[in-house]
Simulated assay, not measured.
Amino acid sequence: MNEMKNEDAICRAILEKKLIGFYYEGHHRCVEPHVYGVDDGETRLLGYQMKGKSNGSGNTNWRQFKTEKMVYLRVLDESFEQSRLKSEPDKWDRYIAIVD
């Protein structure tokens, strides 16, 4: 999928507090998107993975995703109520969208 379309979808999902679904490194993920921006020169998403598999331990947890590796991204109908962030996110090069 086009990266600009992914960016539009991610920003919309953050604004509307909607979960997103996508494939990443061969696994389907269902994620609450929280922070979208640029870190170390790469566009990334920080999200809380709700469902799906991962290469790491456990299925639900905070994860950072390089957006260039996210494929078949779509905004889901399911909402989340509020941010899970306990503090300001780590300093990134630039923030594009942060859930409020």
Rank of each mutant, 00 (worst) to 15 (best):
Met50Val: 11
Val71Ser: 10
Arg63Phe: 07
Asp77Leu: 05
Ser83His: 06
Ser54Gln: 08
Val35Thr: 08
Ile10Val: 11
Lys86Thr: 02
Glu3Trp: 07
Gly58Val: 13
Tyr23Met: 10
Tyr48Pro: 02
Trp62Arg: 02
Leu46Arg: 13
Arg74Ala: 09
Asp100Lys: 14
Gly21Thr: 15
Ser79Tyr: 14
Leu46His: 01
Tyr23Asp: 11
Asn59Gln: 11
Gly26Ala: 13
Val38Met: 05
Asn6Asp: 10
Glu7Trp: 00
Ser83Pro: 01
Lys66Tyr: 06
Ser54Met: 09
Pro33Phe: 07
Met50Thr: 15
Val75Asp: 10
Lys51Leu: 04
Asp93Leu: 00
Asp100Ala: 14
Arg12Trp: 06
Glu42Gly: 08
Arg44Thr: 01
Arg74Gly: 08
Ile98Trp: 01
Asp93Ala: 03
Thr60Glu: 10
Cys11Gln: 15
Glu25Pro: 02
Thr67Arg: 03
Glu32Phe: 04
Gln64Asp: 10
Met50Ser: 05
Met70Pro: 04
Met50Cys: 07
Ala9Ile: 07
Ser79Gly: 03
Leu15Phe: 12
Leu73Asp: 12
Val75Cys: 11
Arg63Pro: 00
Gln49Arg: 11
Ile14Met: 03
Val38Asp: 01
Met1Cys: 12
Asn6Gln: 15
Leu45Ala: 04
Val99Cys: 07
Lys53Tyr: 07
Met1Glu: 12
Ile98Leu: 04
Glu32Ser: 11
Arg12Ile: 01
Thr67Tyr: 06
Arg63Met: 04
Leu85Asn: 06
Leu85Gln: 05
Arg94Phe: 03
Lys69Asn: 11
Val71Pro: 00
Tyr23Lys: 06
Asp93Asn: 13
Met1Lys: 13
Lys86Gln: 09
Leu45Gln: 06
Val31Ile: 14
Leu19Pro: 01
Tyr72Met: 09
Leu45Asn: 01
Ser87Cys: 10
Arg12Pro: 01
Ala9Thr: 06
Val71Cys: 02
Ile20Ser: 07
Lys17Ser: 09
Lys66Trp: 00
Asp40Lys: 07
Arg63Val: 02
Ile96Asn: 05
Glu32His: 10
Tyr48Asp: 09
Glu78Phe: 00
Ile10Ala: 00
Thr67Lys: 03
Lys51His: 12
Trp92Thr: 02
Phe65Ser: 04
